[in-house]
Simulated assay, not measured.
Amino acid sequence: MNTKIQPISDGIGQEIINLDNVNILELDKEQIVSLFKSDGILLFRRFDVDTDTFKEFTNLLSIDFRNYAGGAFSRRVINGDQTLLSVNDFKSEIKLHGEMYYQQNIPLMLWFFCANTPLADGETTVCDGRQFFNEISSSTKELFNKKKLKFTVSISKEEWQKKYQTDNLNTLKEICQKNNTHLIVNDDQSILIEYICPAIIPSRCGKYQVFINSLLPTKQLSSKILKFEDNSEIPEEVVFELNEIAEKITTEISWQKGDILMIDNTRILHGRRAFADDQRDIYIRLCSPAFSF
């Protein structure tokens, strides 16, 4: 089949480029799975893909598509499909992170689709959490081994009903229980939620350590909600070190219309550069792989 495979950049991912009108739905699934397992991130480029084809292609390789209940941002639903969401709710930079790592129940796999390119900027940023771990100083590794991260968020009744897509307190309690999240309900039905998790996790195969979490964007956007589990502050020099590493090992993906990005959310961190125009339209699907790791 007439495609070209090359690294996305030095040291991360593979780019599968269409050279001759190949139908993306006819690509060799076994080859895709093999590349994905070894690299954790694949970029499909120059295929003739619209939103329906994107959904059809992702359905071939994924299961357990989910909505964004419990998510940190507001996301526009595309064509009435709760599993197809826009990621353009605001335009500022988002630091590297794993998707939904402020709760236990994360999507194991992510798909991004470029429905429309930005006029300028707005690149998606990615890096390998294995490499990130290797770059961290031993003193910071030791700190993260001793102390877990703790997210503490106060949410009004109206806000949690929107965030968790329910107005039923018992449903909310079930969601929090499944996510290992401590829930306090106040008299006015506003809530306080607390979630504790490690900053570093073992890889799926158990051979590697992976730095993947929601630390950097939380420190960037809502600094007060994140501390260590003993309520001590995360030192500024540690956050500075992590941001320095992130910039050093980040790969930027400049979107082309129809691009599809496939990401292992247990290994690859992603983020976004700021942009200013209203043209950029990137969609996301949250799911699990339809194959074993």
Rank of each mutant, 00 (worst) to 15 (best):
E229R: 01
T251D: 03
L242I: 08
F240P: 00
S223M: 01
S254H: 11
E247Q: 13
K227W: 00
D230K: 09
I245P: 03
I249D: 09
P235S: 06
A246M: 02
Q256C: 11
L226V: 12
Q256K: 15
N231L: 11
S222G: 03
A246K: 00
A246C: 01
D230R: 08
E237W: 05
T250G: 01
E247D: 15
I249T: 06
I249F: 07
E233H: 05
I249W: 05
N231C: 07
V238S: 03
I245Y: 06
F240K: 15
W255N: 08
S223V: 00
E229S: 12
E233W: 00
E229L: 01
A246W: 03
D230C: 09
E244Y: 15
L226P: 02
N243K: 12
E233N: 13
I253C: 04
V238I: 15
K224L: 04
I253A: 05
L242Q: 08
I245H: 04
S254T: 12
F228Y: 15
T251M: 02
I225E: 02
E236A: 14
W255C: 07
S222N: 12
T250N: 08
F228P: 14
S223L: 01
S222W: 07
E237L: 04
K224I: 03
D230A: 10
E241G: 10
E244R: 14
I249V: 05
I253L: 15
E241M: 09
E247Y: 01
V238P: 01
A246S: 15
E252T: 06
I245C: 03
V239L: 06
S222R: 12
E229Q: 12
T250H: 05
I234S: 00
D230L: 13
T250I: 13
E252P: 06
L242P: 08
L226G: 05
Q256V: 12
E237Q: 03
I253K: 07
S222T: 12
K224W: 03
E247P: 00
S223A: 09
Q256H: 14
N243D: 10
L242S: 07
S254G: 06
T251F: 06
E244I: 07
E236K: 14
D230T: 12
P235M: 07
K248M: 07
E229M: 03
L242T: 08
F228N: 14
E252D: 07
E237N: 10
T250Q: 11
S254K: 15
T251V: 13
F228L: 15
E252I: 00
E247A: 12
A246Y: 03
W255Q: 08
I249E: 11
E247K: 12
S232N: 14
L242G: 08
S222F: 14
E237V: 06
S254P: 07
I249M: 07
P235F: 10
K248E: 11
I225W: 03
S232D: 13
E244V: 13
E237H: 11
E236L: 13
E229V: 02
S223I: 00
E241I: 10
L242N: 09
V238H: 06
Q256F: 12
E252V: 01
K248W: 03
I234K: 00
E247G: 05
N243V: 01
F240I: 08
I225V: 15
I234N: 01
